[in-house]
């Protein structure tokens, strides 16, 4: 292991550019996936049997698919079915976004379903008794409580997504791992470049953990939020009790 080569790799343009692509793909795919997942979760409790069955089928199919298979399918398979997608009008980023977000949506739907089920019936009842319209009940009463419940599992999904973007190297999207491998192909310095890439992921996930703690603190419903927040941050000490 050559320290200088490692340090050069760490500060290389290849990894910095890959970093931007990784962050972009993660945020876009996760955002679309969560929105889609919320929709699917709501459809699962639809009044109409057909709609419920459709939502169930979506989760069934997309949760069963390996992410790599989805990536290859949307990148190679889809243009074969829809010739218009051949050529530069259908970049790898788009294919990767579709693959990752449809996959994420299936997981997110289950997370949201659990969140929706966790809300006490009395909450909707009280909101309806006030005369609130259905959309208002959902937006003002149900959703804020669902968000709090889904933050931990959703944050877990976000971290998974961050790492899974590396699979997009299979469709030659220039994210962190693709660029790492490109460099290795010419330098043959495996250990230095892989370690540098690993550092990038570690830093990314660490930054995100701080964001998650901040987000959870915002959803502590106590008037003395600061004190509660400090208690929440105690995950560093392995103490997760939050009163």
């Amino acid at each position: 292991m050559d320290v200088q080569i490692f340090l050069d790799a760490l500060t290389s343009r290849a990894l910095r550019e890959g970093l931007v692509m990784t962050i972009l793909l993660t945020i876009v795919s996760f955002g679309i996936g969560m929105a889609l997942g919320l929709g699917v979760a709501l459809l699962r409790s639809s009044r109409f049997r057909v709609v419920r069955a459709g939502a169930w089928t979506y989760i069934w199919v997309f949760r069963a698919m390996p992410t790599l298979l989805l990536l290859l399918f949307f990148w190679n398979g889809l243009p074969q079915l829809i010739p218009a997608l051949k050529g530069p009008g259908y970049p790898a980023f788009l294919a990767a976004t579709i693959a990752l977000s449809t996959n994420e949506a299936a997981y997110a739907a289950e997370i949201f379903r659990g969140g929706l089920l966790s809300i006490d019936d009395g909450q909707r009842l009280a909101a309806r008794a006030l005369g609130m319209a259905p959309a208002s009940v959902f937006r003002r009463v149900v959703l804020p409580q669902v968000v709090r419940v889904v933050i931990p599992p959703a944050a877990n999904d976000f971290i998974t997504m961050l790492k899974i973007t590396s699979l997009a190297s299979a469709v030659s999207l220039r994210e962190i791992l693709t660029n790492t491998q490109t460099q290795i192909a010419t330098t043959f310095r495996f250990a230095e470049w892989y370690t540098a890439a690993a550092i990038y992921y570690l830093v990314l996930v660490s930054i995100f953990m701080v964001l998650q703690a901040w987000l959870e603190r915002r959803y502590v419903w106590l008037s003395q939020r600061e004190g509660a927040g400090r208690q929440r941050l105690s995950f560093l000490r392995g103490n997760t009790s939050a009163r």
Binding site: G122, Q123, A129, G131, Q145
Partner: peptide, 25 residues
Amino acid sequence: EATLARQRTDIGMVFQRFNLFPHLT
């Protein structure tokens, strides 16, 4: 449900388990 909501505004209800919204003061 939307029309029912409007009719409910003249009827107040207090529940056994309060049913306050926990995310609001």
